[in-house]
Design a binder for these strands. Structure first.
Lengths: 181, 181
DNA sequence: CTCGTATGTTGCGCCTGTCAACATACGCGC
DNA sequence: GCGCGTATGTTGACAGGCGCAACATACGAG
């Protein structure tokens, strides 16, 4: 076969994808608590139990959403890094990180909110690791000296903290970007 | 009366408190999703509907947990600030912040996870404001110059980001503390 | 064309949140 | 001391969600 998990098209035409799209809409509209297997099924136009052919549980659906989020974040970071000159790379990545958090607050919170554990969701762990890798490599490139480790961690934490503050609407994206050194 | 909301002792002996304690235990053990009005009632030894005499809804219970969290955080920050010399105050507060996040990860995530909105929970807004005030005043005290605003925000974001990384178990508390300048 | 299997459906039990009606115990006024 | 009003807790019910099991269907291989 081909559909095993990745994205075939049987009766419905790619229900897995449709469910993720529907769930993402629910997530953006009402936060994690609003993401429901049944409501996603309803939006996709299938019966309340059809999702179980693609997701073992509600948490598996949430994990898929978080995985997509990490993939999108990684894409955004890669793009930003490729577009920027070596000197301004870190700032560019930081900006991309903040814009991601600002543009999809609910997904950002799902990714870092601890509702889904990476253990037991290999795809999620991989996507998350890849996104962090993109960030870490650029941070390390800028600080190759002795205290690099610490400075890299500081830069990461700063951006991450700003992103959370943005996602929580405690500061707005502009003020956050102004803090990126 | 006296019990209106604050903490009386009628039949049960202070059910409101007992429910908060029980819910806190559930929160620590299983995260937000494990916090259930019915389970809290069970732990407190009352019927499944008794909690409604003290909390209007599940979200109100979660808001109470977050409020308690912000009060504890503020207490920890105040204590740390009082114990430290003026020069090392910011670092001391940062350490207290990180230790709080490390000691009660689930509550930290509830406080900043966006599941409960401050709007509609005045107590929560007040407690959260007070905790941030404690942090902000010390940050500002250390950076009274022109770019103070920006530097204060950077310091805040750094600590906050480290705390999230600690709560998410992406780094351990020791490494985080080493980043506090 | 037939058959196996991936996909989707129907129906169910259990759990939760929440409402409504009822029961009970506390303390105030007499 | 005593009865009553009210804050508190209980019982019962309903809707909605999760996840299981049995069933139905459509696709592709041969």
């Amino acid at each position: 076969m081909s559909t095993s998990d990745g994205g075939g098209a049987y009766h419905h035409g790619d229900l897995r994808r449709s469910l993720i799209v529907a769930a993402h809409a629910l997530l953006r509209a009402g936060g994690v608590e609003a993401v429901t297997l049944r409501e996603a099924a309803r939006l996709a136009g299938v019966s309340h139990n059809a999702p179980y052919r693609h997701f073992a549980s509600r948490e598996a659906l949430l994990a898929a959403l978080a995985t997509e989020g990490f993939r999108a974040l990684r894409q955004a970071l890669d793009d930003a890094g490729r577009r920027a000159e070596p000197g301004g790379r870190l700032t560019a990545l930081g900006r991309a990180y903040l814009r991601f958090a600002d543009a999809d607050r609910a997904t950002f919170r799902l990714m870092f909110g601890g509702v889904v554990e990476e253990a037991g969701h290999p795809d999620l762990a991989e996507a998350s690791g890849a996104a962090f890798g993109a960030l870490r490599s650029v941070v390390a490139e800028r600080e190759p000296s002795a205290g690099a480790e610490r400075e890299a961690l500081r830069a990461w934490a700063l951006v991450h903290g700003l992103a959370h503050l943005v996602a929580d609407r405690q500061i707005d994206a502009e003020r956050a970007e102004a803090c990126l050194t």
